[in-house]
Every structure is written in C-alpha cells, then in structure tokens.
Write a protein that binds this DNA or RNA. Structure first.
Lengths: 197, 197
DNA sequence: GGCGTAAGCGACCGGTCGTGCTCTTTTCTA
DNA sequence: TAGAAAAGAGCACGACCGGTCGCTTACGCC
C-alpha cells in the first residue's frame, strides 16, 4: 500500500503544477497522466473522478501554502514580526515556488468564485481559516487590541497587496512590484500599529 | 453589411458574458452560438477562429471598462476628484456590471498571464495604457508633483484594492468589502497627497 | 514463498471540441 | 428590381474529453 501512496502524491503534485498554469478544469486527465508517466486509466485507481483529483489538488496546495508562509512565522515573538514574516514568505511563495505559473490559490479563486461545488467549498473553507489566523495576528498587533472590523480591514489590504503583487509582476512586467508591495505592507503595519483606539 | 455588424456585436457581447463566467478558453463556440441564437458554423462568418473571437472580446471588455470608469471622471476639475470617481466606478464595474460573473479583466489577466499569444498581448497592451492614464493622475495629485516611482507605487495599491475587493466579495463573502476597499483607497489618497516631496 | 490484492495498462465508449465544406437564404446595392 | 455579396444552416471531420471494463503485473503480508 506504500507504493500507491507515493504515486498518488506524485499525481497530485503534477496536477497542481499543471492546474496552476492552465486552470483546474482546463488540465485534462491525459495531461496529468503523461506528466506523471502513467496511463489515463491508471489515474482512476487513485481518484474516482476528475473532481476528486481537483479536491486533492486544492488540499495539497493549501497545505503547502500554510506550511510555507505560517510555519516559519508562527514562533516569532511579536505579532508584528509574525505578520512581516508571513507577508515576506507570501511573496516568495508567489514568485519562487510558483515562478512559472503564478500562484495557484489566486488562480483557483478567480476560476471557482462562481462555480459552486465541493472544490469551491473546500477552497473557500481553507481560505476562511487562513483569514481567521491572519486577522487574529492583526488584532494582537496593538495594545489595546484592534477591533475585529479594524483587523479585517487590515487583512483586506494585506491580501490585496499579495494579489496585486502577482498581477504587477506577471501581467504587467513591473520590476518594481516587490518594492511596491513590501513598502505598502510595511506602511500598513506602521499605521495600524500606531493608530489610536 | 449593417446586419452583420449588429450580429457581430451580439456575438462579442454574449461571448464576453460567458467568458467572464467560465474563462476565455473554457467557453465553447457551441455555447456562444446557442446564447446568440446562431449555428456554430454561422459564427465563422464573423470570426476566422476562436482566437480571433477572443481578441474581439478583450477589445470589447477593455473599451467598456474605460468608458465605464474613465469617461465619467475625465472632466472633473482636480486629480483627486478624478481618482476618487474612477475608483468608485471601478468597484461598481466589478459588482454591478459583472455581478454574476466577476470582473472579466481580472479573470482574463489570471488566465492569460502565462499563456503567450495575441490575446495576452492585446490585454497587456490595454492594461498598460490604463496604468499610464492612472499613474498620470497620481502624478498630478500633489504640488510638487509625485515622482514616476511614487505614482506607480500608488497605482499599485489602487489596483490591489480593486482586485482585493472582488476576491473579498465573491470568494470570501465579505459583506464589508466595499467599506474596506473604499476606506483603504481614501486613506491612500490622503497619505499620498499629504506626503512631503 | 505462495497468494490475495493493489497497481497499472490498453481498448473502447458516447460525447464535445474547433474548424472546414457545401448549399440556401437574406440583405444591400447598382 | 436583378444580381452580387453577405449571412447563416447543415453536415462531417479528426482530435480529444472524462470515464468504464477486463486483463496482466507486481507488490506486501502471512
């Protein structure tokens, strides 16, 4: 049973890579099979349907995302340091881990935001958990703590900058994008931490 | 030749509507033909290929975008008023004009950012013209004028908020998204206009 | 070390894809 | 109003789609 698990993991990895480039529905089972060196029918020993494979891809991507951005930050002493580390890793995630395809989370979000179904539900649920984690960090950014509304507004900007960074770098070819994103985020932290309750 | 032009316009409109929902490549010619009440082969009297239709869709969407966001703002007296108006119309564009599908420009950007070809080239070119227009407004926001770099950084944040707004409202179901986006943008204008040279 | 089962292959299914080709109908114009 | 040109229908094509079935192979456990 060990061999099967390894193969399944390879399938999910390749499917995620292809889906990040072309979209979740646009990648065909034949594409994945060829990329992983399997026959199309062999895939069905690991997934009952294409949709089941998409679910596994979203799970895989979200796990890798939190591992890449939250794990290095979780143990830092202050909320400010944690937020700075998360944002830095977030930008790295977008242009180092996924340099050839763009961030799959953003791609999946845009693709699925009007396509109801289990894949969208899973993505939405994972993203809400992520937002909860980050909003909590913003709450702790200041003493007295930020209100929930204030923290959500700050998270809105943080995520906006992460999305804007990908667009600027990939679509617009903006070589200054990283500087713009970083300084925008630092300025956000500055203001948010300073603002009076 | 008049009738043909009207039909062609209907085709492009329907194709844009469907492409905003499902993506440019995911929408099939059969879908478009049915939506517009034509046969699949009838489409080829107006477009030589699917790609040619996609080009027309991107042209159409970008024209409507600038008409919707820039035209109402162009004649306002100050850069600040123009920018505020553009941003307000931008949010309206996303959740009123395209309430059932999400903004096609963002969708196309994410879909095409790693798919070279004439469709991507056209989109990129149009978006760069749009950025130029907005960056010029930011330059004029303050006396002494902003540097090109400062203005581009401000535009980066503006576009980020517009993208974040769509994600927050559509994917995350954030009912406060409009308030978050608007206050973030107003705060950006405030800071940018005030900052010393 | 034999054996059950998981892993994987190849052929094939009905359906849809984009795109030609031919033929008819409609529309514009001289 | 006649006739050319445009608009559009119908059909067929090869390729590819997600998915099924039966077969063989190879692994993992007793």
């Amino acid at each position: 049973m060990r061999k099967g698990e390894a193969t399944r993991a390879r399938i999910v990895d390749e499917a995620a890579r292809l889906a990040a480039q072309r979209g979740l529905t646009a990648v065909s089972l034949a594409d994945v099979a060829e990329a992983v060196g399997l026959s199309k029918s062999g895939l069905f020993k690991h997934f009952d349907s294409k949709e089941a494979m998409q679910v596994a891809v979203v799970e895989n991507v979200m796990e890798r995302f939190t591992a890449h951005t939250w794990t290095p930050a979780a143990d830092l002493p202050t909320a400010r340091e944690r937020l700075e580390k998360v944002f830095e890793c977030w930008l790295d995630w977008e242009d180092m881990v996924w340099s050839e395809s763009g961030c799959p989370i953003i791609a999946f979000s845009v693709e699925l935001d009007d396509q109801p179904g289990p894949v969208r539900d899973l993505l939405q649920h994972s993203l809400k958990r992520w937002r909860r984690t980050l909003v909590n960090q913003f709450v702790d950014l200041r003493e007295p703590p930020l209100t929930e509304t204030e923290a959500q507004a700050a998270y809105f900007q943080m995520k906006s900058f992460a999305m804007g960074y990908m667009d600027a770098r990939r679509m617009m070819g903006d070589t200054d994008a990283r500087r713009s994103a970083t300084s925008a985020f630092v300025s956000l932290l500055e203001r948010t931490a300073k603002a009076a309750a």
